[in-house]
């Protein structure tokens, strides 16, 4: 059996007194879309920073394609095929959309003209083709989220970490982006996405991990997760699962 694409084993991250990620273990096989959900401050973004290399785990192991990458700098992980987007978008504000995406494309294309051509192709996939010459600073929030996606995609990743790319979008914008993510998966990229928009999680993800206070409290299909007592408690507070169950019984 070949190694899983990503394997996180007992990873923890402590910031002073806060244990943001607490012995998290998870395995992701190549090919699907996996969700990572959890209440605010659960440690989802921190887990992404550990996988992408922006922070080193306090303890634990992170392996990509069977290789321990826990000590590698972010750019080396990107070169291996791990791309991430930022929850708080980080555009190259002074550059055009085309130039922004081309920076990502340069990872696999040394020549400027090839990187620019690749940027154009990627812009079409994410629906930014009509904005190629616009300055990134002039994009709406929805446009900036697409740009995050485009730049990461332009690095031709194997594993794509999406941190709330749908946050801040209105329902119709969310509906526009969902097929883009499906198209990325069809292109052979494995996706791990942090998302609060449950409609998207339900329609996109095969498997969902639930993180609360730094720990994985549930793992399963989206429909199973939404019925999980631990998950309901984590989101709605202690005793919520019981109260809901009691209400369901009362309503017959």
């Amino acid at each position: 059996m070949s190694a899983p694409l990503l394997s996180v084993q007992n990873a923890s991250k402590r910031f002073g007194g806060v244990l943001a990620v607490d012995s998290v273990s998870l395995t992701i096989n190549a090919g699907g879309i996996t969700g990572l959900i959890g209440p605010n401050g659960a440690g989802k973004t921190t887990l992404f920073t550990l996988i992408s290399g922006f922070e080193r785990p306090t303890s634990g192991r992170i392996a990509f394609q069977g290789v321990d990458i826990g000590a590698l700098a972010p750019h080396k992980r990107a070169a291996l095929g791990v791309a991430r987007t930022f929850q708080i978008v980080q555009p190259f504000a002074g550059l055009t959309v085309r130039e922004n995406i081309a920076v990502g494309a340069h990872l696999r294309h040394a020549r400027r003209d090839e990187a620019l051509a690749k940027a154009e192709a990627v812009s079409e996939r994410v629906g930014l083709a009509d904005r190629l010459n616009a300055p990134a600073s002039g994009l709406t929030i929805a446009g900036r989220k697409r740009l995050e996606l485009a730049r990461a995609l332009a690095t031709e990743p194997t594993l794509l970490l999406l941190d709330e790319v749908l946050a801040g979008l209105n329902p119709s914008e969310v509906r526009d982006v969902i097929p883009i993510i499906q198209d990325i998966r069809r292109g052979g990229v494995t996706v791990l996405m942090v998302e609060h928009v449950m409609q998207a999680v339900m329609s996109l993800c095969e498997t969902v991990f639930v993180l609360a206070q730094g720990r994985i409290i549930a793992e399963g299909s989206p429909s199973a997760i939404t019925k999980d007592a631990n998950v309901i408690e984590a989101y709605l507070g202690h005793g919520a699962a019981k109260r809901l169950a009691a209400r369901d019984v009362a309503h017959g």
Partner: peptide
Amino acid sequence: RSRFGAYLVAIRENESAAQALGIDT
């Protein structure tokens, strides 16, 4: 007009984003 130039400008604009895109800043 080179990759080096694109990387340099990317670092100026946003160093974290540059690293995420594989640039050895």
